[in-house]
Structure formats: structure tokens, C-alpha cells
Design a protein around this nucleic acid. Structure first.
Lengths: 219, 219
DNA sequence: TAGATTGTTAATCGATTAACAATC
DNA sequence: TAGATTGTTAATCGATTAACAATC
């Protein structure tokens, strides 16, 4: 609640996973869970769970564990999921369109309000009710509508310039699917989704396993 | 080259980024680079670069630095990118289709050979030349064609069962876009792309910055 | 009350950074 | 040769795990 010390990225990255598991428990009508039980389900240590949660407060009770619904809602608040966010998609290609069509986002309160592209064949179209505008309308749009996050799904060559513009116009969050690293002012947050990199690490690990097996017959 | 000790995930996750920067340098006709220069470009320490690379061998030369083209090709080999991989997409929805349409994959040697879905309206269709089959044809396909990686872009409810089947049929790599954690045998590698989780951590950080600013006027 | 389980401090482990001798 | 920069060892830092007193 009070920002006593900075929470490490490692912890933050685990929060959505806790949130998901607690949501599942809630759906299974489980009302309480101990860090021990949750640790078994999630394949992490109970110690880590308790340490992680205690960064944000004491949500449990000795001898009892955690109330699932209460903890779920607390994590929801911590993640800031108790309100709606407005997002725009910049780059109406494959991935941009797929994200607009992903209906689960809306259910969670992530609302895509506009798509921007340079392609005249896309401009004026509507994707699941969301209009595609010419990028030259973007400045106006961003300045006249609350935009929490820009989803960058445009070619590498254009991403940096566009991100700089958006940051200058006040957008504080960049969800970056473009295959470049963005240099942003420190009050602008960038979260990268580098799909190609992700696939490459998978391939590395597949080959690593194959090599190991070749060398030491029984793992 | 020889698997003396296990390389940590932290290192592996950085390899694609090195590869990308070296590729960019190569395109700019830069022939040599020191760890110092590269560290400035990449915003990491020179020490980390040298440590990372030395997990795989000594690719540099004292007093000179690293030959860009040589290092680029070495990392390419380390990542296993010197050959072609066959992938299948399981779940022909938005994201599945977007990945099939993403032409950059093919250029890198990631070839999508088939899409599987349950939806009769998709089955028989062709996406950029790739046929969509009924999932009940999947076992045959996997057993008769080399499939390096299955891209899982199906609903949460079905993902675990399908992944288990695929693993049983010999698929060693799962690129998992479904919002569940998969429990696989240890010779099967899972790389998760949990888009919702990624967006949630972004939102957390945006709110964190706003709070800080509210409390301490000048950062 | 006794048992269970938290919150938290201390110990361990691993990853990053610094330092420097080796050497191109 | 002198200067530069690596490869590698040692020091530091941070994150994870273990332990246990507090307490429901």
C-alpha cells in the first residue's frame, strides 16, 4: 500500500500467476489455502509465496492460511485490475488484428479504443467494432482521449519513432511487440513481447536436451 | 560446444538479444566491436557480455574485441538457427492465424507445416498456403512428419490434454500461448507466452510510477 | 489448549559486477 | 613495444530457501 521499498521485477512477474491460480481455486469453490498447498500446486516453494505476498501486506492468518477470495481480490487491487484501461493498437497487421479480436481482454477491462495504420486498405475499416484510423490522426486521438497503453505491433523500422511520439503525447505504457528495444523516459514503462526471441530460446533448449541425451544415455 | 555445465536461463534468454544486435551491426557494415562498445549500445555491463559469451567459448581477441560476423554466426549456431524447424499450429484462432501469416518466421527457417482446429468452418481452409486440418488428423500428421515445435494457441480448457497427446507422440517443444501451465515430461520443453500476464505486469508498473510521482514530486 | 501456519529473520545460493593478469 | 581488451577469478549484490518465534 505505501511504497516503502521497490518491489523487484521477479516478484511482480509472479503476481499474475498467483492471480490466475487463485481465480481457479475460487472457481472450484475452495475458500482457504495454505502457502504449503499452493506451493505444491504452483511448483514453487511455500517460502517464496509468503515472501512475495508479504511485500504487499499480511494477507494470511496463522494456523489458517489464506482466504482465497480475499487474497484474490487483494492481488487484483495490487495489479490495478480493479479499473478499466484504454488501449490503442498501433500497426493493424496480423498480430495487431489478433489482439483486437481477442475478446478476453475486454472481459478483464482492457478496452481497445482505436487502431492506427498507414495502409490505405485498412484505414476506415472496422475490426470487431474498433475503427482503424490513419496514423496521422493519432496525435489528435491521444491528446483528446485517455490512452493508458499503446500496443506496438508495427515494423521494427517505425517502432522507435512512433514510440517517441506517443511518449511525448503522454502515453505512459508501451506494450511492445516490435522487434526493437525502445529507449523511453523513465516514467514510461515498456513491456516487451519479443516473440521471435521467445521461440529462439525454446529452440536452444530443445537442442540442449537432445545433446544431453546423446551424451548421457539415462538423464 | 561440450556440455560441461548447465547454462542458466538468464544467459539463454539474453542470447537472442545479442544475436539481434550483432545482426544490426552486421547490416551497418561494422566489422569489429568491443564488449565495452556493445555494452553501451545494449545497456548492460561489458562484464556481463564477456561472462555470457564465455559460457560458450572464447570468441574474442585481446586488444581487438570481437569480430562481428564471426560472433554473429557463432551465436546463430549456439541458438541452433543454422537449420530449419517444422512447426504446427494447434488452434486456428486469432493468434494462431496471425502467427501463420507472420512471414518473418519463414525467413528465419521456422516453417509452419500445418494448422489444426476443431472448427468445421476452418477445417479445409488454407492460410497463406498452410492447410487447416481437423484435430483428429493430428496424431497421424505428427507421427508421419517431423514436428519440432507445436504452437499452442487454443483455449485454456483444451491445452493440457492436447499438450499431453503431442508429447506422447514425440513433440519435444511446446510454444504455449494458452493461459495454463503445462506439466510435461522433462525432455519436453515448454516456453510460455502468457500475453495477459505480460500486460498485467505492465499495468502494475504504470500504476507504480504514478504512485511514486504522486508521493515524491521530483523523482 | 494444542496444532497449524503465518510473517519475518537468517542462511544459502546464484547471478551480476569488478578487477586484473594474460595476451593479442 | 605499448595500448587495448579479452578471459577468468574474486567480490558484491540480490533473490530464494530455510528456520523459527509469534499467534491464530
Amino acid at each position: 500500500m505505501n511504497s516503502e521499498r521497490k518491489i523487484s521485477s521477479a516478484v511482480i512477474n509472479r503476481l499474475p500467476r498467483y492471480y490466475r491460480y487463485l481465480g481457479d481455486l475460487l472457481e472450484s469453490d475452495i475458500t482457504r489455502i495454505s502457502s504449503k498447498e499452493l506451493s505444491t500446486k504452483m511448483n514453487i516453494t511455500a517460502s517464496q509465496i509468503r515472501q512475495d505476498l508479504n511485500n504487499f501486506g499480511g494477507f494470511g492468518q496463522q494456523g489458517y492460511g489464506y482466504n482465497v477470495e480475499y487474497l484474490y481480490n487483494e492481488i487484483k487491487k495490487i495489479l490495478g485490475l480493479d479499473r478499466v484501461y484504454n488501449l490503442i493498437v498501433v500497426g493493424g497487421g496480423n498480430i495487431g488484428q489478433a489482439l483486437v479480436n481477442y475478446t478476453n481482454f475486454e472481459k478483464r477491462g482492457f478496452v481497445i479504443t482505436a487502431v492506427f495504420d498507414v495502409n490505405p486498405r485498412l484505414i476506415g475499416m472496422t475490426i470487431r467494432g474498433v475503427e482503424v484510423y490513419d496514423v496521422d490522426k493519432m496525435e489528435d486521438f491521444v491528446k483528446n482521449n485517455k490512452v493508458d497503453v499503446a500496443i506496438l505491433t508495427l515494423p521494427r523500422s517505425q517502432a522507435s519513432k512512433v514510440a517517441n511520439d506517443l511518449a511525448a503525447w503522454g502515453v505512459k505504457g508501451m506494450w511492445n511487440f516490435s522487434h526493437v528495444d525502445l529507449a523511453m523516459p523513465e516514467d514510461v514503462i515498456v513491456e516487451n513481447v519479443h516473440l521471435t526471441d521467445s521461440l529462439m530460446t525454446l529452440l536452444y533448449k530443445i537442442n540442449e536436451v537432445e545433446t544431453e541425451e546423446g551424451q548421457t544415455p539415462n538423464s
